[in-house]
C-alpha cells in the first residue's frame, strides 16, 4: 500500500531545491554588486587622478590654472578644523557619556538626554550647517572661520563620540569598580583611575571615527558660507579656510566649464580617501590591540 506518491514528492522537491539554489546565487550577486561598485568607484577616481598628484599638487595654493592649482590650503584647513573638532568633541562627548553611564539615575532626565542624542544622530548634516550659520557665523558674528566651522562640525559628530564612549564605559566590568571602592576610593577617583583607563581604547576609536566623519563632511561647511576660492592659508582659529571636500565640490561643479577640474577633483578625492583610510586603520588597530576583554 502506497501512502506517499514519490514522483509527486520528487517533482515538488526538485523545484524547491531549484528555488533554493537560485536564491543563493541571487543573494551572492547582490552582495557582490556593492563590492563591484566600490571597485569601479575607486578605479575611476584613481585613473582620473593619474598624473595629477605630485608634490606640487600638495604644496601649491589654489589657482584658476589647473596646471598650477594645489590643495595646500585645503589640507591646512582640514588640520585647523580638526584642531577645534577633536578637543571639543572629546570633552563634550566623553563628559556626557560619563554622566549618563556613571552618575545619572535611571529616570526622566537620563532618558531625555539619551533620546536627544539618538535623535541628534539622525538629523541631516545640512541642518547642523544652518545651526552653525545662525548661531556661530551670524549670531556670534564670527564669519565663516575655522572656529565657527569647527564648532559646527563638533556638534555634528558629537553623537558618534557619546555613543562609542558610553559603550566603552559600559563594557568596563562592575568588579573593577567594586574593587576600587573597596580600597576606599571615591566615585570620581574610581572613574578617573579605573573606569576611564579601561575604557580609553573604545573611546579613542570612537573619537577617530568621528574625526574621519568630520573630515569627509561637506554640506555643513557649504551652508556656513565658505566661498569657492580662498587663496591665503589659514593661520589661526579666526582665519577663513577651506577643506578638501569643499574643494572637490567646487571643482566637480566647475568641471563642466574646464575639463581638467574633474582631474583635480579626482586627485583631491584620492588624497582625502588616503587620509580617511589611514585614520580608520589606526582606529581598527587601537581596537584590536588595546581593547581588553574582561
Amino acid at each position: 500500500m502506497k501512502y506517499v506518491d514519490t514522483t509527486q514528492v520528487q517533482k515538488k522537491m526538485s523545484s524547491r531545491l531549484l528555488t533554493n539554489r537560485i536564491a543563493k546565487t541571487l543573494f551572492l550577486l547582490a552582495t557582490l554588486f556593492g563590492l563591484l561598485v566600490l571597485v569601479v568607484l575607486i578605479y575611476r577616481v584613481f585613473s582620473q587622478s593619474l598624473g595629477w598628484i605630485d608634490f606640487d599638487f600638495l604644496n601649491n595654493r589654489l589657482s584658476t590654472n589647473p596646471e598650477r592649482a594645489g590643495i595646500k590650503g585645503a589640507i591646512m584647513g582640514t588640520m585647523w578644523l580638526m584642531l577645534v573638532v577633536a578637543p571639543v568633541t572629546l570633552i563634550l562627548g566623553v563628559g556626557t557619556a560619563i554622566y549618563l553611564e556613571e552618575y545619572a539615575k535611571k529616570g526622566r532626565l537620563q532618558a531625555f538626554i539619551q533620546m536627544n542624542i539618538s535623535n541628534l544622530a539622525g538629523v541631516p548634516s545640512i541642518v547642523f550647517g544652518i545651526l552653525g550659520l545662525t548661531i556661530f557665523v551670524r549670531g556670534l558674528n564670527l564669519g565663516a572661520v575655522v572656529l565657527a566651522g569647527g564648532f559646527t562640525m563638533a556638534l555634528l559628530v558629537l553623537p558618534v563620540v557619546v555613543v562609542a564612549s558610553q559603550e566603552a564605559i559600559r563594557a568596563v566590568p562592575q568588579f573593577l569598580r567594586e574593587a576600587s571602592y573597596g580600597m576606599g576610593a571615591t566615585k570620581w577617583q574610581t572613574i578617573k583611575n579605573v573606569v576611564l583607563p579601561a575604557a580609553i581604547p573604545g573611546i579613542l576609536t570612537g573619537v577617530i571615527l568621528a574625526l574621519s566623519r568630520a573630515i569627509g563632511e561637506t554640506a555643513p561647511l557649504v551652508v556656513i558660507g565658505i566661498p569657492a576660492f580662498i587663496i591665503p592659508l589659514p593661520d589661526g582659529l579666526l582665519d577663513k579656510f577651506t577643506v578638501m571636500p569643499l574643494q572637490i565640490y567646487y571643482w566637480t561643479i566647475d568641471s563642466a566649464l574646464v575639463d581638467e577640474y574633474a582631474n583635480l577633483a579626482a586627485a583631491t578625492i584620492v588624497v582625502l580617501l588616503l587620509v580617511l583610510f589611514i585614520m580608520n586603520s589606526i582606529a581598527v588597530l587601537i581596537r584590536n590591540k588595546f581593547q581588553r576583554r574582561f
Binding site: 556593492g34 566600490l38 577616481v45 569627509g216 561637506t218 554640506a219 565640490y249 579626482a266 578625492i269 580617501l273
Partner: peptide, 11 residues
C-alpha cells in the same frame, strides 16, 4: 562603502 564621504559619491 559606508565610510566613503558623500561628496565622493556626488563626483
Amino acid at each position: 562603502l559606508a565610510g566613503i564621504p558623500t561628496i565622493v559619491y556626488g563626483f
